[in-house]
Nucleic acid binder design. Sequence first.
DNA 1: TTGTAAGCGTTATCAG
DNA 2: CTGATAACGCTTACAA
Lengths: 335, 335
Amino acid sequence: MTTAQRPTLEAVARRAGVSRATVSRVVNGSTTVAESIQQAVRQAVEELGYVPNLAARSLVTQRTDSIALVLPEAATRVFSDDQVFPGIIRGAAQELEAADKQLVLMLAGSPGGHERVERYTTGRHVDGVLFASLHGEDPLPGRLARLGIPVVCSGRPLDGVEVPYVDVDHVGGVTRAVRHLIEGGRRRIATIAGPQDMVAGIERLIGYRDTVAAAGLPELVAYGDFTRESGAAAMRQLLAAYPDLDAVFAASDLMAHAALRTLREAGRRVPDEVAVIGFDDIETAAYTEPPLTTIRQPIVELGRAMTRQLLRIAGGEAVEPALLLPTELIIRDSA
Amino acid sequence: MTTAQRPTLEAVARRAGVSRATVSRVVNGSTTVAESIQQAVRQAVEELGYVPNLAARSLVTQRTDSIALVLPEAATRVFSDDQVFPGIIRGAAQELEAADKQLVLMLAGSPGGHERVERYTTGRHVDGVLFASLHGEDPLPGRLARLGIPVVCSGRPLDGVEVPYVDVDHVGGVTRAVRHLIEGGRRRIATIAGPQDMVAGIERLIGYRDTVAAAGLPELVAYGDFTRESGAAAMRQLLAAYPDLDAVFAASDLMAHAALRTLREAGRRVPDEVAVIGFDDIETAAYTEPPLTTIRQPIVELGRAMTRQLLRIAGGEAVEPALLLPTELIIRDSA
DNA sequence: TTGTAAGCGTTATCAG
DNA sequence: CTGATAACGCTTACAA
């Protein structure tokens, strides 16, 4: 276990025959250092394999060069295969890599986890906090913002607090999807709505309601929680309650996938008798039977946009209170 | 932007009427402090909302209380919907939460990213490093280990270096799967192998080869890279080369899923004419047409086990050089 | 049991 | 343009 003593600024300074301050300047790219000295310092850094001690640096700069991504979802649901969270993670990681900052991932599913996140983030151990997919009315984003800690949420915070957020255009996407159904001649259009304690669930239902109402069509609603199991159950409810339905918009591809299967089991042909549209455009959507028509959301871009906003806030810039990313209707065979 | 000055140990000490050292002791749970003083300190901590500055702490303790999880995959592939990486992330997060340590996520797909990971990890900015799914012969794990930095890999490192690793029992799982096919009367058993620069791809192919060879059956091999697209292409190759095949083992569920569709398009009935078995047991596997027989791997547990090993190493314990987690054959309808 | 004081490795402020 | 020197907030011998 040779815990090789890592070289310090001091060591580099001695070797290059200059002061610590000068080495620090070179390392941090100050331009006010003579070229010859820069050379010498850089060589010493190279020879000694010097790497700055971030703890020492952040102690004096008051920055940590890391940001937290909080996934406040119950741990079991965070990584269902809808790829939403992985997509956000990936987008954030890409953008942070460019900014040379670290991504600290925190799951806040359990109550203990939530408390831990609170301690850590309020303790200013990160330069900013990204919240993915709030559940219910989490007071943490608002609290952090009030403490002056940069915060960006994915989706409008449900507790009405003024925190900058980025989201995809749920309503626009759903509107296009439902109109597509109507234009296809469907008149008994049902929906499998998402959980109503999440922005995505709420907004997608609004999009459905407004569009069918505008067309003078009835609202046929059942609720799920974005998972396949819940989608299957909701589809059965809909079939029982509205046996004459001729279309269904499911608020997630997972639920749509389950609906497809449930419809088949019930002997309904898709899309001939019942058209189905999902939301997300997960990879599997192209491989369902029949391939799923769905609304694509730019999920990686969501992660990137959130991160960019956060970095701007951390940099002292003012940012738009809300950013809406476009969604797109992907037409396959199910509708 | 009221960047509220956060309270320091000093402030707490003043308020409680004791020295900094005593506060530090209480905060760090030393037992050698009088009960009454502990009370006072705790109250002061509470009132001031004191949270320790981790940078300052780590500067003196030489620990960072954070560990890195490196995903050295190309960014575009890290988050395909096979759930492997999300599963590992989740397992690591769970275990680290229990240990009150932070998870720093690093993607090392691009060359620049890889260099960044190297700088960061060799710079001892983390107490240990977890490597998920090595690609090719990455020298970094070995180098870190030599520097005395705790390292654990998922899967045996391909450059033959002696780094502790945890993996699932690929060979055992595949052996059971292929035997199941043989017992079902299949005699022309093909495989869609995974990429041969990854342990998972290599080992799963070994499992197939050994088992068909032991049964005196021919090896019918095509290669993919675990993705659906590659699986479809490989399945077409196999059909062209071995039109009389009666079973196929795909080294990933995604490839198996694509194979299912390709077979259907080619007019082969599954499982009557061709049996199909996958590997992973992703959520979608239960929803394919027909539902996919596959090998389940405990992927979250893999993340947890890796993390536990790493924490033990960081704690100075000696650990087993390798740990193998059991896999399980899940029989559905496709074989 | 508690307090004092010496660092930990940087950056930043001043002089020079 | 460069070098002392003082923080930054905490832990930890060593004293008391």
